[in-house]
């Protein structure tokens, strides 16, 4: 079992909705910096509950996604699984229901990894391939915060970039 799956989810056709996937593309560019026996970076795209099979292969999952919390666009949030369950579902992106269902299904099957969500408040969700300028500007810090979380989850130190 690997230590960590970093899963970017979202729809890259819907502007800011796709930022989780855009972040994964950034991590793919620095693939050589990561120990692939410890961590995988996966583009989950517009996944549904059927991604739960991946969950069985990791100790931890770090989901990168948008979070709608009525904050300033670009605000970055870190949420643990129990917070996801307590909060209003609508606060999360379109994928949260599947995410929690997937975890529930994995748990019923007997194993469930630890889940963390790193989210970012979107500016606009509409048809379009580009992030809004606000989120495009926030992407480097989103990736950088993700990098820090990954380092913590892998219990290694990450050189600051």
């Amino acid at each position: 079992m690997k230590k960590l799956l970093v899963l970017g989810v979202g729809n890259i056709l819907l502007m800011d909705e796709g930022i989780g996937v855009h972040a994964i593309y950034e991590f793919w560019k620095e693939k050589q910096d990561w120990d692939e026996t410890l961590v995988d970076f996966i583009d989950g795209g517009t996944f549904t509950q059927d991604l739960f099979y991946l969950f069985e292969e990791y100790e931890n999952i770090l989901v990168l996604d948008i979070v709608r919390a009525g904050q300033t666009p670009g605000t970055i949030f870190s949420l643990e699984e129990d917070q996801l369950r307590k909060e209003e579902k609508q606060m999360l992106s379109l994928h949260d229901i599947d995410l929690l269902d997937s975890l529930g299904m994995a748990r019923m099957r007997g194993y469930c990894p630890r889940l963390k969500v790193l989210g970012i408040e979107p500016d606009k969700i509409d048809w379009g391939m580009q992030l809004t300028p606000t989120l495009a500007a926030a992407l480097p810090s989103f990736v950088s915060v993700a990098r820090k979380h990954i380092g913590e989850l892998l219990a290694i130190s990450i050189p600051s970039t």
């Binding site: 729809n11 890259i12 056709l13 795209g45 517009t46 996944f47 549904t48 599947d98």
Partner: peptide, 10 residues
Amino acid sequence: FTQRLCGVCT
């Protein structure tokens, strides 16, 4: 692009 329209029917 079209295979990203839907999470089920990719």
